[in-house]
């Protein structure tokens, strides 16, 4: 009983800490220096309608690079860690009828929607990550529907690697051609609002989308079943 009380006291203490910070807070009237800069000349410089994408991909490109490498890292850790687990071989029984037919219907729509999301990430809300996640859910649905076929692991690994390397190359191109690493003005910015605009951002987001999609599927499939242990 005392243990619970002490824990309660701790959480109350933490709450008090947050409260001291937030007590006097009320929303600011106007944007602060950096976000107002983004709002005014950020548009012309980067040319992306969706300012969040502009911030995510170019202004704070390194964060996104870090984030992608985190997913890549998690995938590879699961790769070498779970694969070596020598679990019992579970017989894969077939999935139910409804799931099979529904997935045949739903799959193309989800795929299409995912691709739409990450292609015009710079115009409408959404982007590489959201698109990739949707793509992954589509692929996992397909895999769930008919588990027998199994997933060809190597395709995902290759797509991952290619998109990762391309992302880095674009970054290096940024140094060579434009202002700095991951600068998007490698190709002309174009006018705000139409499809081919905001420099290299759409291309980056396409590859990020594919990469995230591939990674998330491989993470999930790794978790699902451990394929034949092929580590000598």
């Amino acid at each position: 009983m005392i243990k619970k009380l002490t824990f309660l006291a701790l959480i109350a203490g933490f709450g008090y800490m947050l409260w001291t910070g937030l007590a006097k807070y009320n929303a600011a009237e106007s944007l602060n220096r950096i976000s107002s800069y983004y709002a005014q000349d950020g548009l012309e410089e980067v040319g992306a309608a969706n300012l969040v994408t502009a911030v995510v991909v170019t202004y704070r490109g390194l964060d996104t690079l870090g984030e992608v490498s985190i997913l890549f890292l998690t995938a590879s850790i699961l790769g070498f860690f779970l694969v070596s687990g020598k679990g019992p071989k579970i017989p894969l029984q077939d999935s139910s009828e409804i799931l099979k037919t529904a997935s045949k219907l739903l799959e193309p729509i989800i795929l299409l929607f995912g691709i739409y999301v990450f292609i015009n990430g710079h115009l409408t809300p959404g982007g590489g990550f959201q698109g990739g996640a949707i793509l992954a859910s589509a692929l996992i649905l397909a895999y769930l529907a008919n588990p027998k076929e199994g997933i060809n692991k190597s395709i995902f690994r290759i797509t991952e690697s290619i998109s990762g390397v391309v992302f880095i190359l674009i970054g290096i191109l940024g140094i060579v051609l434009a202002g700095g690493f991951l600068d998007n003005r490698i190709i002309p910015v174009g006018s705000i609002g139409d499809l081919i605009s905001a420099g290299i951002i759409p291309i980056i987001y396409i590859f990020v989308g594919m990469k995230v999609g591939a990674e998330l599927t491989s993470i999930v499939t790794n978790l699902k079943h451990s394929p034949k242990n092929n580590v000598e």
Binding site: N50, V52, T53, V117, P125, G126, G127, F129, Q130, A133, I134, S137
Partner: peptide
């Protein structure tokens, strides 16, 4: 944007 990510 965040809403979509959070949901997905």
């Amino acid at each position: 944007d965040v809403a979509m990510t959070e949901a997905a």
